[in-house]
Amino acid sequence: MMRIAFDLDGTLIHSAPGIRSAINAVLEELGAEALSLAQVTGFIGNGTLKLVERSLRASGLAAEGAALEAAHERLGAVYGADPTRETTLFPGVRGALDSLKAQGHSLTICTNKPAGPARDILKHFAIDGYFDLVVGGDSLPTRKPEPEMLHKALCGGDTVAYVGDSDVDAETARRAEVRFGLFTEGYRHASVDALAPDFRFSDFAALPALVAG
């Protein structure tokens, strides 16, 4: 059977509203105005440090050195206190995971979100038991789109695939030279055709049949 790695934010979970609330709490402390949901969603994908850097720049604040480090640490505290707030599973996720496990596939997580909050979220939604491994943005020295995280998440699988939603995920799969399945309802910026997925879906109910095929 196949070993399948999943991205988390924008793929299994709709987390942008909660991330926005956390980053806006940090910006408020720094005297800046709140960012819109569209802005914050556009900043998601390259890890929390890059999220903070982009948010600071968008707010006209210092976005490097000690200022960046302090804001990043503060976001970790604010978001880490409740990483599940304003976060939901995308429809059909649980049923798809059930079907994939029933087919005998091995499932893992490969996300630029830090591993601790990622595990907390999986546990909160009672889907942690589906996954054999969680590789987070702080698990290795490099982050997506560098391929090392995905290589680790897929290690041990003779047949492998990566399921994600974004430009970063598509680039990661390309660099890792693995099949890429695109969830089209996530946080991507480029067109579906530009990302050139091996397969695509807008409804998780369709995923088990795509994998089986």
Rank of each mutant, 00 (worst) to 15 (best):
H105V: 06
V93L: 07
K101V: 13
R54N: 00
T159R: 14
R200K: 09
G65I: 11
L61M: 00
A77D: 04
P147L: 11
L122Q: 08
R143K: 10
P145R: 02
Q103P: 13
R74Q: 09
T159N: 11
V78G: 11
L49A: 10
G164D: 07
L97K: 02
A81V: 05
G186W: 13
T172F: 06
G137E: 06
S139Q: 02
T159L: 13
T172P: 00
A34G: 13
S166G: 05
L30E: 05
A173R: 14
T111M: 03
L195Q: 03
D158A: 15
K50N: 07
K152L: 15
P117D: 05
R174V: 10
E177T: 07
D82Q: 06
A25G: 04
S55G: 03
V135A: 12
H151M: 08
S202A: 04
D98T: 13
D198G: 15
L68K: 02
E73K: 15
M149K: 13
V26K: 04
A81C: 03
G164T: 12
G156N: 08
Y162K: 08
S106C: 08
A212M: 00
K50R: 09
G186C: 13
G95Q: 13
A170C: 07
L140R: 01
T108Q: 09
T88V: 11
G45H: 02
T142A: 04
A62S: 08
F43K: 04
S191M: 11
R94C: 00
I44V: 14
A77V: 13
D165R: 15
N46C: 01
P145L: 07
A212V: 04
A25W: 01
A118G: 04
H14I: 02
K152I: 12
G31F: 06
P197C: 11
